[in-house]
Simulated assay, not measured.
Amino acid sequence: MTGTANLKPTESELEILQILWEKGDCTVRDVHEVLEKNKDAGYTTTLKLMQIMHEKGLVARDTSAKTHIYSALINQQKTQQHLVNKMIDNVFNGSAARMVIQALGNHKASKDEIDSIKKYLDELSNQ
Rank of each mutant, 00 (worst) to 15 (best):
K48I: 01
L49Y: 05
M50F: 09
G57D: 04
M50I: 09
D62F: 03
N75E: 13
Y70K: 03
Q81D: 14
T45Y: 13
Q51T: 11
K86I: 12
K66G: 09
I52R: 14
Q76S: 11
S71A: 10
L58D: 00
A65M: 11
M50W: 05
Y70A: 01
M53T: 06
T67P: 00
K78P: 01
T45C: 15
Q51F: 05
L47T: 10
K56M: 06
H68V: 07
Q51S: 14
H54F: 15
H82P: 03
H54S: 14
T45E: 14
T63V: 15
L83E: 15
M53K: 02
K86Y: 13
H68L: 00
Y70W: 06
Y70V: 02
T63H: 03
M53R: 01
L49C: 06
Q80A: 11
I52M: 04
A72Y: 04
K48T: 11
M50P: 05
Y70L: 03
L83T: 06
I74G: 04
S64L: 08
K56C: 10
E55F: 08
V59L: 10
I69S: 03
L83G: 12
D62C: 10
A60Y: 13
V59E: 03
A65T: 09
T79I: 08
T67M: 08
G57V: 09
N75R: 00
A65G: 12
M53D: 05
M53L: 06
N85R: 07
S64I: 10
R61A: 15
Q81N: 12
Q77T: 01
Q80G: 09
K78A: 15
E55Q: 13
Q76W: 01
Y70T: 02
T45F: 13
A72T: 00
R61T: 12
Q80Y: 11
I69Q: 03
D62G: 10
K66S: 14
K48E: 12
L73T: 09
T67A: 15
S64W: 00
Q76G: 10
K78Q: 14
S71P: 04
A65V: 08
M50Q: 08
T67C: 00
S71N: 06
K78C: 12
K78N: 11
V59M: 01
T45M: 11
L83I: 10
